[in-house]
Design a binder for these strands. Structure first.
Lengths: 153, 153
DNA sequence: CAAAAATATATTGTGCACGACTAAATCGTG
DNA sequence: CACGATTTAGTCGTGCACAATATATTTTTG
């Protein structure tokens, strides 16, 4: 009866910070943020704001809830962020007359006009990653699987 | 002369949110945080606080600067975080008498005693990832390369 | 040795991220 | 139809994350 269901011993080697997958993800997320910053500063967006613009550029106007589902963010995060995008004149927000609970987020002309900057931004970041298409796609898919495992519960 | 140095066109397909490596990393970082939360709540730590404890458990007392280098965080982030760990009675902070600029962070008895909880925490997270050792190591190494590319410049 | 440069930490202000809560609108069932 | 449950946004409080700045302490240099 030496086996226990939980707490199977992990060797000290595996406890090192640089062996942790979670830290690799955490630190890479910060590195991405820093790589994006100088590029996004030029267009006046933060990285999360850029993500919101990406979904609007891709799919057009939609309620806050749907944006949140795609980004995995709740209203506590999105509400103030959207307010800032609105103040910057990039998006508009109106209550859906069909269902007054929902707020439909749309692109202003100024916001829609920024779409042409996607190419520059993505090219710059793509270069910074130092990954070719294939490598990037592989890593992305692995992360998506990992994320769905973590979320599963 | 149809080629341009920058702005090589990216097909619309590749602009989709779910095709972005950056978003995969960003969203996975959040997913990890959420997976850790219920586990770390029980020991009263946030995830970044847990990372600080990891480096202290691994290497013992050391100055703020060195902790920051390992976690890639600056004093603006660490100072208030360490203050909270100190108030929780897990660490101590003293100026280095050899160099009064430095603050040496050390584990209190209570903080050191928590080390035995590592196994439980790491096992729980390891299970949640749904990855075997090999898969985890591969992903981690790819991320470390990606991160060093992004940081390179 | 004194002034200047470099180093280590702390503070402040802005913007996420999230849990807990509130308010308003809609839906469902008796 | 009515009223309780659900859905959708927004607000508030806490804790990162980081740029910019401040302060104190070395270290370097003229």
């Amino acid at each position: 009866m030496t086996d226990k269901v939980e707490g199977r011993d992990i060797p000290d080697e595996e406890k090192r910070l640089d062996r942790q997958l979670c830290f690799a993800v955490y630190a890479t997320a910060h590195a991405f943020n820093r790589a994006y910053k100088p590029i996004l500063d030029r267009v006046g967006l933060t990285y999360p704001q850029y993500l919101v613009m990406l979904v609007l550029w891709e799919k057009g106007c939609q309620p806050v809830k749907i944006i949140g589902e795609q980004l995995d963010l709740d209203s506590g995060t999105l509400s103030p962020l959207l307010k800032r995008l609105e103040q910057a004149g990039l998006i508009g927000r109106v209550r859906d007359p069909k269902d007054e609970r929902q707020v439909i987020v749309s692109l202003t002309e100024k916001g829609a006009g920024m779409k042409c900057q996607i190419n520059t931004i993505m090219s710059a970041i793509g270069d910074a990653t130092g990954c070719d298409m294939e490598e990037m796609a592989g890593l992305r898919d692995r992360l998506q699987r990992l994320r769905s495992n973590l979320t599963a519960e």
